[in-house]
Structure formats: structure tokens, C-alpha cells
Design a protein around this nucleic acid. Structure first.
Length: 257
DNA sequence: ATGGTTGTTGGACAA
């Protein structure tokens, strides 16, 4: 099974880029983030025409996640437990061929000193609780998406400059490690321990892309049973260099069938 | 040190 994750920064603005890339990369499952549209406004027909089921969880203007799948998706979950008043569209999860697969958009958390950062940390606690529950269930699972977390200094171009940012500060990385220490495998780093400049996001500003000033924030976290089936995990920088690109580029995961 | 960009939206806000 081939699974892709991609923060598209508006599915409407990115539709030609996304459909062209899907035709070439041919993933069985696609995890999208930052749809920036309401659920009903998701351009689902474009993906159905390519053989995908479409399961979007959207809202106006901000956030929004989706799972596209060539095989049936069952038992959909569309939010994380723990904060019933939270209406941000950041999580969707379903079962595909016996694997629980989630598309998540973890809060950015900037600027520090506002409610945004505590919200990010609480959201990470809620995700950890969900992962613990899935581990208890024994089902293999893959949590993919935009984590808005730079795990290690080698995952950004200038660790010193990022040291006080919500994506990299110590407390954020510690929470991410808590998640990993449940027993999850971060697929890209597990397969490419020495990789440098393996970025998934480059800011639109200040020539970040041509200068390769990026960060690695889009990840796949795998349960032990899913990690046993890990074949490959790679970043495709191609889409970031195209016209009208998202500021993120897709990451691909291959699991043994 | 500031400003630099893109998307949604029709002035900021988010990233």
C-alpha cells in the first residue's frame, strides 16, 4: 500500500497540481491538509474521476483535512476526543485494508504568548491519547500529516533561528517525543538516519525555496505492526518547484501488502 | 531589523 501526505494550502488553488501529481505518483491513499474550504466545497469529483473515494472534513477559510482512497474506507472518525468545543477541522481517520489511517493537521502554535501555543500542546496531548487508545486496540495504524513539529536540529536549515519558534522550541519537541515513546516509528527518519536538507516545507518568502531554506514538518508515525511492514518513505521535492506550488511538498510511504 | 509571499477574502489574519 502506497500512502501520500501533502499539505496543499488550499485544495481549490492547488487542484491542477494535485491531480497531475496523483496521476504520476499513483498512491493508493492520499492524506491532504489545509483544504481551506468547507466540506461541501471539496472538489471531490475530480478525485472520484481518478478512482478515489473522498472523505473530507472541512471548514471555511482555515484548516481542513481529507483522506482519498482507491479502496473502501470504513469506520470514519472526524475529530479527536477531549475538547468537545473545538471546531477546528484537523483530524480524519478511517480503516483501509485493515489499517487505521489518519490525516492530521497539528496546530502551528505561533505566535508564542497567545492562546495558540497552549492549544497546540493540548492538541498534541489529545493526539497522544488517541495513539495510546489505538495501540491498546492492537490494530496497525499510520498517522500522517502536517505535524508542525521540527523533530531535530538537522530537520531545519538554522536551528538557532528556530529555537524560540512554536515548531521547534524544546517543549514542542518534548511532546513529540512523548508520542514517539509510546512505541511509534517516525518512518522517514527511521529509514534515512543520516539525511540532511530533507525538507518538506519552504516558506514562500525571501527565496526560501531556491536557497533551500526549508524545514521537515510533514511526518508519518507508524504503530509497531505497521512499522514491521515499512518498505520505503521518501520526500518528492518535484511539486514544490512547479508553478503555483504549495509551500509544502508531498511525502510518500510504502507498506508491504 | 525589516521585509519578503500566498490564500482567503474583500481588511486582516494565518502560515
Amino acid at each position: 500500500m502506497r500512502i501520500a501526505t501533502w499539505n496543499v494550502n488550499s485544495i481549490k488553488a492547488r487542484l491542477p497540481n494535485v491531480t497531475a501529481w496523483l496521476a504520476e505518483a499513483a498512491p493508493d491513499v492520499v492524506l491532504l491538509q489545509e483544504l481551506k474550504c468547507e466540506t461541501a466545497a471539496m472538489p471531490a469529483d475530480a478525485f472520484r474521476d481518478m478512482g478515489y473515494e473522498v472523505h473530507a472534513v472541512g471548514q471555511k477559510t482555515y484548516n481542513g483535512v481529507a483522506i482519498l482512497s482507491k479502496r473502501p474506507v470504513t469506520d470514519l472518525v472526524t475529530r479527536l476526543d477531549g475538547e468537545p468545543e473545538d471546531e477546528q477541522a484537523r483530524y480524519v481517520e478511517g480503516t483501509i485494508d485493515g489499517i487505521r489511517v489518519a490525516s492530521l493537521y497539528l496546530p502551528n502554535g505561533n505566535p508564542l504568548g497567545t492562546e495558540k501555543y497552549p492549544y497546540k500542546l493540548r492538541w498534541m496531548d489529545r493526539l497522544k491519547a488517541r495513539a495510546a487508545s489505538l495501540l491498546d486496540s492492537g490494530v496497525p495504524f499510520v498517522l500522517g500529516g502536517d505535524y508542525n513539529v521540527i523533530p531535530q536540529p538537522e530537520d531545519c536549515y538554522d536551528p538557532e533561528a528556530w529555537s524560540t519558534d512554536a515548531l521547534f522550541r524544546y517543549e514542542t519537541r518534548a511532546k513529540f517525543r512523548e508520542l514517539l515513546n509510546l512505541g511509534l516509528t517516525e518512518a522517514y527518519r527511521a529509514l534515512h538516519p543520516a539525511a540532511r536538507h530533507a525538507y518538506t516545507f519552504w516558506d514562500y518568502q525571501a527565496g526560501a525555496w531556491p536557497r533551500d531554506l526549508g524545514i521537515r514538518i510533514d511526518h508519518f508515525l507508524l504503530s509497531p505492526a505497521a512499522a514491521d511492514r515499512l518498505l520505503a518513505c521518501d520526500i518528492d521535492r518535484g511539486p514544490r518547484g512547479q508553478e503555483k506550488a504549495s509551500d509544502h511538498t508531498p511525502v510518500l510511504l510504502d507498506l508491504m501488502d
